[in-house]
Amino acid sequence: MSDAAASDPEGSAWMAIKKRWRSWLRAVHRDAGYLAVGLTVIYAVSGLAINHIADWDPNFVSYTRERTIAPIAAEVPDDVAIAEATKALGVGPPRSTYRAGDEIHLEFDDRKLVVYGDSGTVIEQGRSSRFFLRVANWLHYNRGKKAWTYVADIYALLLLYLAISGIFMIKGKKGFKWRGASMVALGAAVPLIYVVWSGGPSASNRAALEAARTEARPSAPAPAADEPIERMPVRIPPPVTPPAPAPP
């Protein structure tokens, strides 16, 4: 150890930090990245699935089938009607049954059958779960609340660390000063450009307000095709007299 370092231990620690902080940052970034893999897969896959919820059901595969049996008259007692329906459909004993109006409901664990007694129409509805996606979506929506709120918070902090530490991991031409800065700017510009282009969250409300104003504005009814258009006389406004200058 040099005399200078021995006489200034604080300075030596500072030198060590200065020399090695980037490698420590990379080491923590690497391990944080490993930790984040599982949750990132869950949130990303579920995000893709939920983002297109208007186009598909990300949780279940559902089906509806229709068939016909002989009509069951309203006067037939409930237990007889249910027995008749079950026999005609060739299904086992239902978990639960219910009869109201012309409807006979037969509930099973994974499906339900509704018999419309007056027509004999039978509607069968059921669904099966997309196991991984359903669990991932449940986690993504934080439907379970409780401890998952804290897990999600920690994961968000982890992502922040990964994003910010990523900026400083490499030095030189491919580091933040050169390539990194332009890539970070490009990435940050995407949401900014979108907000400016779309008008942001208030834009749709402003458009709606304008539409409502336009609708509320009274407009003259259009003349029928065979009616002559009455020409209004053009009125020329009187010349505007400039106001007298204020007295001094």
Binding site: F60, S62, E66, E103, V114, I123, Q125, R127
Partner: peptide, 8 residues
């Protein structure tokens, strides 16, 4: 449409 609502 002549059918009961599905659970979802």
């Amino acid at each position: 449409d002549g059918k009961p609502f599905a659970i979802e």
